[in-house]
Structure formats: structure tokens, C-alpha cells
Design a protein around this nucleic acid. Structure first.
Lengths: 198, 198
DNA sequence: TCAAAATGTAAGTAATTGCTTACTATAATT
DNA sequence: AATTATAGTAAGCAATTACTTACATTTTGA
């Protein structure tokens, strides 16, 4: 679907307002106002509020590109600890970029369960697959002790996700790059010490 | 406030329905029907929908009693690893007991930000305080390496919280006691290995 | 048993919301 | 310049929702 500039304005406004006020708490009038158009134009472009919301979910869906991080790193012979740091950093940056969308996924799970659960589950499962694959390959190379790579990946990414969620979404802060690095350093240290072979 | 049995029925029904459909997605008619009363009775008891919701937030607010776990354990000379397992277990059990309420906290943060953020932040901060205090005392006793107890506590509880959130809330499953134990065992192993002194 | 309290019945209000319609004006394209 | 496409104006509709009112019935407690 090729997007006109009006489409884009509407989608952006919808993303912003729905992430702030919820789907049911945001009126089509609000969205139109925010986009600088009339309400009737909104309906001309998207047909209904629900269709607009579906397009928002489709348009802003994302997957963190951890695969690419691992590829880059495999070419660079960086060690395990720094790899985890880079993965953590990339993951966190992605979360920050997509903050509004993540807010919507959390809060609209009841109103629009099918798509939000699908997107959220896919996000979790795919990112975990990549990281657990990496843990496995490091185990196979004899670098790591025996543990469940899938559960460890869930743990590692879960720590980061939860930290992000609490600070940025619950507390409404914006974490500085420095602070993120510090947090990731601490988490990675625990993970490295906790997963390396003796 | 002393609760009549009708009050309780209304509060329980509101908790259930709001956790399933959201605050705005749940009508006072729905709640009345679920409670087996008429809508006018609901207003007699609570005055408004908003007031009812406030009472739900007040009534179902909780803090996991990790302090008690630590007290019990300190009397029992249980080791660090088993302590973390018991803490993890108690925390997870609490999350499961309060699943509906936690769903509401996540999803209604935009509609009712002040109280939900307050409750959620308090929950995070208090539980972290208790666990980080325990980490500190173990460091002071010379058992653990140097790391930030606050950040480690955030990490540990964050892993559990995120795992719970994804499985029970996003994916809508109910995790078996066995499965929880296994997950906690894995997470604790990483943490124990990651925080013990060499 | 009786009076007070609690709840139900039935109807209604005002406001809000998503959405539509018809006509007009503006912008873009040929 | 003329035509087509896009957007605006103004008004309105039907449905829904939180809430209210007045009267009747049932339940509870003394």
C-alpha cells in the first residue's frame, strides 16, 4: 500500500494519541485534529476507526534486528561479553525507538487481542530464537557451561525489557544513553559470569 | 471501609471485567449483570464508574511479602541459591494470584495514570529494595562479588516479571507449578553463578 | 411483627461517538 | 485552461453510555 502524505500524517497522529490515551480513549475527532485534517477526510482514507487502528498495527510492527548484530559481530571476532553488550544495546535502542508502539501493544491487548498478541508473541519468540541460537553456538564451541539457551535468552531479554518498561513506560522517564550502557554492563556481567564455563 | 457482600460482588465483578475488557471497554451495565444486581444498585454503592474503579485499585493493591520470605530464611540457615529460589517462587506466586490486577495496571495506565503508575512503581521499588538489601547483606558477609545490588535486584525480578507477563498475560496461558520451578531454577543458577565470589 | 434499609423496575436524560451526506473549495494533473 | 482528485464545511444520524428519578418490592434487623 503506497502511502500519501495525508495517510502518513493520520497514521502518525493515531499512533501518538492511541499510545497516550488508548484506542477507546482516543476519538476520531482527536486524531483528525492532531493530523491537521477534518474528520471526514480521515474516514475517506481509512473507512473506519478500527481499520485505521489495524493499519497502525501493521505499519509500525517491527522486529529488532538482532540477527544482523550477530552477523556483524561474527565477522569481527569480538568476545562473548562484548557481543552480549551489543545485543543488549541494540535491543534497548529498538525498544526506545518503538516506545509508542510498545505502549499500544501493552495497553490494547484487551480491545484488540488477536493482532496485539500476535505481534507481541512474535517479537518475543523471534528475538529469543536469535539469542538462544547464539548461546547454543557458544556452548557448542565449548565456551559456555550447560544451561537452557532458550530460558537464558528469555531471562536476558526479559531483564532488559522489564527495565525499559518500568522506566520509560510506567515511570514515564527517558533513560540516557549512558545510563543504558551502565545497566547493560551490569546485566551482562551477571550473565557472563553466570553462563561461562568454570 | 466495611464491605457489604454486595460491595464485594461488585468489586470482584469490576476487577474481572475490567481486566478482560479494559476500563473503557467495560460498561456499568456489564458489571451490574456480572454481579447479579441492577445498574442502579451499583450507583447506589459506588456513586460513579470512576469511583468504583478507584475502589478496585485500592482494594486489590498488594505488595509481595518478600520481607517475610527473607525473615523465615534467615532463621533457617538456608543457602544463597535456595534463598533466591524461594524469593523467586514467592514473587511468581504473588504475580499469579494477582493476575487480573496486574493486567489492569498494564492496560489502564493511560486511562487512569496517577494511581496505576503509583501502584506499579511502588510495587517495583519496594520489592527491589528488599531483594537488593538481601544482596547487600550477602556482599557484606563476603559471599558475593562486587556488583550493584539495586541493578541486580531489578534484573532478577525483571526476568521473572517479564516471563510471567509474556506467558500468562500476552499468551494467555497458565504456567504449571512445575514449569515455574524449572524456570526459576534456571534463572537462579545464572544469577548465583553470576554473583558469587570466585 | 414492623420499620428501616437495601434493592429492583421502568423510564428517561444529556452527552458523546463513529460515521454519513451533500455541497463547496482547493490542489494536482493532463 | 479544463478536468480530475482531494480535502473542507456543515449538518445530521443512530447507537451507546453513565447516570438519574420515582415508585415498588424484598430483605434485614430490632
Amino acid at each position: 500500500m503506497v502511502r500519501t502524505s495525508t495517510d502518513k500524517k493520520i497514521l502518525e497522529s493515531a499512533l501518538k494519541l492511541i499510545s497516550e490515551k488508548g484506542y477507546l480513549g482516543t476519538t476520531t475527532k482527536d486524531i483528525a485534529r492532531e493530523a491537521g485534517i477534518t474528520e471526514v477526510t480521515l474516514f475517506r482514507h481509512f473507512g473506519s476507526k478500527e481499520r485505521l487502528f489495524e493499519e497502525v498495527l501493521k505499519c509500525y510492527t517491527f522486529l529488532p534486528k538482532l540477527k544482523e548484530v550477530i552477523s556483524e559481530i561474527e565477522g569481527d571476532s569480538i568476545n562473548y561479553e562484548n557481543t552480549l553488550k551489543k545485543i543488549g544495546m541494540r535491543f534497548f535502542e529498538t525498544l526506545k525507538e518503538r516506545k509508542s508502539f510498545i505502549r499500544i501493544l501493552s495497553s490494547e491487548m484487551n480491545v484488540y487481542p488477536d493482532k496485539t498478541r500476535e505481534v507481541f508473541s512474535k517479537f518475543i519468540d523471534e528475538t529469543n530464537k536469535v539469542l538462544s541460537g547464539y548461546f547454543k553456538s557458544q556452548q557448542n564451541a565449548g565456551n559456555l557451561r550447560k544451561f537452557s539457551p532458550e530460558i537464558a535468552a528469555r531471562g536476558f531479554l526479559g531483564m532488559l525489557f522489564c527495565y525499559f518498561n518500568v522506566e520509560e513506560i510506567v515511570k514515564g522517564k527517558s533513560i540516557s544513553h549512558q545510563k543504558i550502557e551502565m545497566i547493560i554492563k551490569e546485566f551482562v556481567e551477571i550473565f557472563v559470569n553466570g553462563t561461562l564455563k568454570d
